[in-house]
Amino acid sequence: MVRAGGRRAGTRKHRPFWVELPLLIGIALVLALLIKTFLVQAFSIPSDSMQNTLQKGDRVLVDKLTPWFGSEPERGEVIVFHDPDGWLDDVAVDPPNTVQKVLGFVGLMPSAEQRDLIKRVIGVGGDTVECAGDGPVKVNGKALDEPYVFPGNTPCSNDPKGTFKVTVPQGRLWVMGDHRQASSDSRYHTDDRNNGMVPVDEVVGRAVVIAWPVGRWSDLPVPDTFSTVAGAALLPGPGPAAVATAVPLLLLLRRRAPN
């Protein structure tokens, strides 16, 4: 229906952009918080313990959705997990400023207050993991071919903590860094309450993509060596939800890259 004068009935006057801007920002922050909580979260790599797979300063995207459906970490996956029992007590953390706190809370940047670690899963519940001399690492008696180990490192070490044979309890994980001679991992925390194991409940999720810097973008697949371990299941790649969420985030990061 058109009234005299040519104006449509019910036409509403548009609000100025500056009035709508706070609402748009609020919606964006809520969406970012939901994505961080249930789907995917960015984490910054703070050390060299996962070289050369991950470099200090890399940003990885972590799939947090899959664990909601009961999936547990598999051998070979790179995972982020909460500090199980004081592993980071001697690591200094710079206090975050207000902007870092806000952006970290909504997941737009890694939180400086989080006490999380990133390592590779070597053994899962029921596995026997052992090291002697320079290696190789053995899982259930099967020697691992580990091409991801930092060049110049040996898979095992001759120090007292580097020689071991452990059986991983159900609901626990044995983790090691790829930079074997520069990683304070399960080997060096066998005297804690978990005997160096990481409880599955402490796992945040699987790191699936290196998203930043742009030149280092790549996925983080499970190495083939773990498919030869007795009892190993077929290990899938990143879930569709993780990939679908990672792509737009990567595009956003690309747009923000400096010229």
Results as ranks from 00 to 15, higher is better:
L117H: 04
D83K: 04
L88K: 05
R115W: 10
D48I: 08
D58L: 14
P67W: 07
V78N: 00
L54K: 10
R115S: 13
P96K: 05
M109Y: 03
Q100Y: 07
F69Y: 14
S47L: 10
I118C: 10
F105M: 13
R115C: 09
G123A: 13
E77K: 00
D83P: 05
P84L: 05
R59V: 10
I45L: 01
A112Y: 02
Q51Y: 06
K56F: 09
R59F: 13
R75Q: 05
L61F: 11
K56T: 14
K119F: 08
D89I: 11
A92H: 04
P73H: 06
L54R: 06
R115K: 14
T66I: 14
N97K: 09
G86T: 06
I118F: 07
E74H: 13
P110T: 07
D89W: 07
E72Q: 15
D48A: 15
F69H: 11
I45C: 02
P95R: 09
L61K: 09
L65G: 01
F69G: 13
S111D: 12
D90Q: 13
V62A: 04
D83S: 03
L61Y: 06
G123F: 01
Q51A: 03
G107D: 08
T66P: 08
Q114M: 12
S49V: 01
G107T: 10
M50A: 00
I45M: 08
